[in-house]
C-alpha cells in the first residue's frame, strides 16, 4: 500500500474517536442532553421535540452512529441562539479565521526559521543565548496580553494601525491587511518561539553530521550549504512541530479574535459560550479538531518530500 493511502486511512480511526469523545461529552455528562441542546429559554414542548428527535431511549452506539452519519453529511445541528444550522454559521465565519491563521503561520515561520538557524550556527555564543531568551519569553507571553501590548504601542501610541476590527479582503486589500497584521503578530509570536527552538535543535543535530563537514570541505557556499543540505535534513522535526503547534494556534485564534474583535469562528465560539449555545460549541470543537487532524496529515505527507525513505 502506498504511503499516502496508508496515512489517509490512519486518520480515520482518530477522527472517529474524536467524534466519539465529543458525542460522549454531551451524552454521558450528568445533565439532560435534550435540555442542553434546546437551551435555557426553551419551552417544555421544544425540549420534548428535541428529545424525540434524539431518540434517547435507543442504545448509545446506535445514536452515535446516527449522529456520526449526520455529521459526515455536514449536519452539525441547530444553533439555539440563531436558530440556523451550525455548519452555515461556521462557514460564514471561516474566512477571517483562515486568513488570520495563515498570516500568523507565515509570520511565525518567517521569524523562526532564520532565528533558529542563526542560533544553531552560533550555538553557545551571546547571539544564541539572546535568541533562545526571546524564544522562552515569546513562549510565556499570553497571546491576549501580547495583543493588548501591541495595540497600546502600534495603535494607541504610534497610531500606525487600527485598534481592532476586521475588513473583508473584497472591501480593500490594504485595509484588510492593516487590520490583520497585529492579531497575526500576537498569534504568531508564540508559535514562532516554539518553531525557533525546534529549528535550532534540529539544525544543531544536522550541523554535527559528517556530510556537513564534507560539504564545507568541498567549499560549498554558506547559503547552498545551509539551505540545500542542512535545512532539508532538518526539515522533518521542523514541519512536525509546525503541525503539532497548530493546535496551539487554533486555541490562540479563539482568544485573539476576542482581543481584536475579528468576526471569525473564534468569536463565534466566545459568543456561544456567553449565550450558552452548546450546539455551536460542539460544532466548533468538531471542525477545529478535524482541521488539526488534516493539518497533521499534510505534515505526515510532506515527510515524503524531504525524506525519500518514507515513500516506501
Amino acid at each position: 500500500m502506498s504511503y499516502v493511502l496508508r496515512r489517509l486511512l490512519a486518520t480515520l480511526p482518530v477522527m472517529a474517536t474524536v467524534a466519539l469523545i465529543v458525542f460522549s461529552l454531551l451524552h454521558l455528562s450528568p445533565g439532560d442532553p435534550a435540555h442542553v441542546l434546546a437551551g435555557e429559554t426553551a419551552t417544555p414542548d421544544e425540549v420534548a421535540s428535541i428529545r424525540a428527535a434524539l431518540g434517547l431511549e435507543r442504545p448509545f452506539f446506535e445514536r452515535f452512529a446516527d449522529w456520526s452519519y449526520s455529521v459526515i453529511t455536514g449536519n452539525l445541528g441547530q444553533s439555539i441562539f440563531f436558530g440556523r444550522p451550525v455548519a452555515d454559521l461556521i462557514l460564514q465565519r471561516a474566512v477571517p479565521s483562515i486568513a488570520l491563521s495563515l498570516l500568523a503561520l507565515l509570520i511565525a515561520v518567517a521569524i523562526a526559521l532564520p532565528l533558529g538557524m542563526f542560533a544553531a550556527w552560533r550555538a553557545g555564543r551571546v547571539i544564541d543565548k539572546m535568541a533562545m531568551s526571546f524564544a522562552v519569553l515569546g513562549f510565556s507571553l499570553p497571546t491576549f496580553v501580547l495583543g493588548y501590548l501591541l495595540i497600546l504601542f502600534f495603535s494607541v501610541h504610534l497610531r500606525w494601525l487600527p485598534v481592532q476590527g476586521y475588513v473583508a479582503p473584497e472591501d480593500g486589500a490594504v485595509s484588510f491587511l492593516r487590520h490583520l497584521i497585529l492579531p497575526a503578530l500576537a498569534l504568531g509570536l508564540v508559535y514562532a518561539a516554539l518553531i525557533a527552538r525546534v529549528t535550532r535543535a534540529a539544525m544543531l543535530e544536522v550541523l554535527g553530521q559528517d556530510y556537513m563537514r564534507t560539504a564545507r570541505a568541498k567549499g560549498l557556499g554558506l547559503w547552498r550549504m545551509v539551505v540545500r543540505h542542512a535545512l532539508k535534513n532538518a526539515a522533518v522535526p521542523i514541519v512536525t512541530v509546525i503541525g503539532i503547534g497548530f493546535g496551539m494556534l487554533i486555541s490562540g485564534v479563539v482568544v485573539t479574535e476576542t482581543v481584536f474583535n475579528v468576526p471569525g469562528v473564534g468569536r463565534l465560539t466566545v459568543d456561544a459560550i456567553l449565550r450558552r449555545d452548546y450546539p455551536v460549541i460542539q460544532g466548533v470543537v468538531l471542525v477545529f479538531s478535524a482541521t488539526y487532524v488534516l493539518i497533521n496529515l499534510l505534515v505526515d505527507l510532506s515527510y515524503a518530500l524531504f525524506d525519500p525513505r518514507v515513500r516506501r
Partner: peptide
C-alpha cells in the same frame, strides 16, 4: 492510546470550553 491520540487532536482550550459549557 487511541483515546489519548484523539484527545490530543482536540485543541486544549476547546476541550475545556466544551466541558465547562456542560458542567
Amino acid at each position: 492510546m487511541r483515546v489519548m491520540d484523539a484527545m490530543m487532536a482536540i485543541p486544549s482550550i476547546l476541550l475545556a470550553v466544551a466541558l465547562i459549557a456542560l458542567t
